[in-house]
Amino acid sequence: MMDRRTRLGGALLAGVLALGAAGAVAYASDHLDPSPRVDGAHGLPADIADLYAWKQGDDVVLVLDYAGLVQPAANQSGTYDRDVLYTLNIDSADADFEPDASIQVRFGKDGNGQWGVQLLNVPGAGGPIEGAVEQTLTKGSAKAFAGLRDDPFFFDEQGYLDTLSTGTLSFDSTRDFFAGQNTTAIVVEFPVSALPGAGPHRFWATTGRIGTGG
């Protein structure tokens, strides 16, 4: 069994090396992609980590997390940036790959300097969802949350990086690079019946920063 694992690991290593030669630092699933655009405080809030979508009872749940690879710290809060727009696109009606609904998510502070979140166009909400971060917000038949969470992704990224730097096979299925790390997540839940069409439903997420030049 160990031989099998090692040989499989070797096969995957070769693939990773081939990709490295293609010029990309590949932080799966999408962390630090696009890497050339990520430059610390400016890039991190717009750097999507992962997108999830599933049916939960009679509802659909969408999760978009970003600003990953954050180690726990004292008095830590989520990553919020007034200048970034998060969009969750849904093509449900006609499979034309154009959004039939686009949930827009923005952050802003109140007069006391406390961060809030606004979600527009959430199916089933009947209007904007607004409120403090780190809380479950309910409007109509929809729920929303934005805040700091455990990074839900699991992958031996460290083994991949070690392998690239040392040339020695380092994959280890017992090592989770994302263990113990935090990310900021936007979670929305609303009835399947509120989706803009019968589906199958196609979801994709984008981020943008105000103004030009990324």
Binding site: A28, D30, P34, R82, R106, A205
Partner: peptide, 29 residues
């Protein structure tokens, strides 16, 4: 905002694209 938060009101077209994600790992790999 109806709740006292200072959210931008700029239309989506005023933002410059940064990142796009659908399937995991496709763009990265």
């Amino acid at each position: 905002s109806v709740a006292g938060f200072d959210f931008r009101t700029d239309a989506p077209g005023a933002y410059t694209r940064f990142d796009r994600v659908g399937m995991p790992a496709v763009s990265t790999v």
